[in-house]
Computed example of a mutant assay.
Amino acid sequence: MYISVFDLSSGYISVKSDIFSFGVLVLEIIIGKRNRGFQHPDHEINLMGHAWALWMKRAALQLVDECLLESCVNSQALRSIQVALLCVQQRPEDRPTISLVVLMLGSADPPLPDPKQPGFFTARNPFYNRDTSSSSKNNPHSVNEVTLTSLDAR
C-alpha cells in the first residue's frame, strides 16, 4: 500500500513528503512524544526544532525517552536520530529515498551525511491553548496555521 502526504511547501504530493512523515514518526518514537502538542519547558520550538537543537549541541542522546534508555544501544539511537533528521530536511531533494533509509537504519555502514536544518522548524503558535479546541470562538487561529476550505456546489 502506498500512502502519500501533502507537501505544504510545494503543494504537491510526493515520495519525499512520505520520507518527511517517516522522519517525524521516527523522532516521535525515539522521544516518546507526539509532534503535535510537543512542549518543552526551556523553549518554544517544535519537536523537530528541539531534536535539531540537541543534535547541533552534540547532545542528541538527551532525546531518547527514559523508558528506552536502559535497553537501547547509544550508537543505534544516535544513528536513528540522524536518519530521522535526514528525512525531515527542509529541501525535499536533500531527503533520502526510502530504500536508502532502510539501508541506513539496517546497517552501521556507510557513515551518514550530516543533516541540514529541518523543514517546518517553528515556534509553537502563541494563540494555541491546549485547554481549548481550535474551533473555539475565543481562539480564531488554527493549531498549525493551516486553513482548509471545502467548496460545495449550491
Rank of each mutant, 00 (worst) to 15 (best):
residue 18 D to C: 10
residue 49 G to S: 00
residue 61 L to N: 10
residue 16 K to S: 11
residue 131 D to W: 15
residue 9 S to G: 14
residue 58 R to W: 08
residue 52 W to F: 01
residue 48 M to V: 07
residue 43 H to Y: 03
residue 84 A to V: 03
residue 32 G to C: 09
residue 38 F to P: 04
residue 41 P to G: 02
residue 98 I to W: 05
residue 142 S to H: 08
residue 120 F to G: 10
residue 32 G to D: 09
residue 57 K to D: 04
residue 146 V to M: 05
residue 115 P to Q: 08
residue 113 P to K: 02
residue 109 D to G: 02
residue 72 C to P: 03
residue 122 T to K: 02
residue 38 F to L: 06
residue 65 D to H: 01
residue 78 L to N: 07
residue 48 M to T: 02
residue 1 M to F: 10
residue 89 Q to Y: 03
residue 63 L to V: 05
residue 93 E to Q: 09
residue 33 K to H: 09
residue 113 P to W: 02
residue 104 M to H: 05
residue 130 R to K: 15
residue 84 A to S: 08
residue 143 V to F: 09
residue 107 S to P: 02
residue 41 P to N: 03
residue 118 P to Q: 07
residue 35 N to C: 12
residue 72 C to Q: 12
residue 33 K to Q: 11
residue 25 L to R: 06
residue 142 S to G: 10
residue 99 S to A: 08
residue 74 N to K: 13
residue 13 I to E: 14
residue 58 R to S: 14
residue 83 V to A: 01
residue 55 W to L: 01
residue 136 S to M: 07
residue 128 Y to S: 14
residue 21 S to V: 07
residue 73 V to H: 08
residue 101 V to I: 02
residue 148 L to M: 07
residue 39 Q to V: 09
residue 120 F to E: 14
residue 126 P to N: 11
residue 137 K to W: 12
residue 80 S to N: 13
residue 119 G to H: 06
residue 131 D to R: 15
residue 8 L to E: 13
residue 140 P to V: 03
residue 45 I to F: 04
residue 115 P to V: 08
residue 88 V to Y: 00
residue 38 F to N: 00
residue 4 S to G: 10
residue 14 S to L: 06
residue 21 S to L: 05
residue 106 G to Q: 00
residue 126 P to D: 13
residue 59 A to H: 09
residue 5 V to S: 12
residue 135 S to H: 15
residue 130 R to Y: 15
residue 104 M to Y: 03
residue 99 S to E: 08
residue 96 P to L: 00
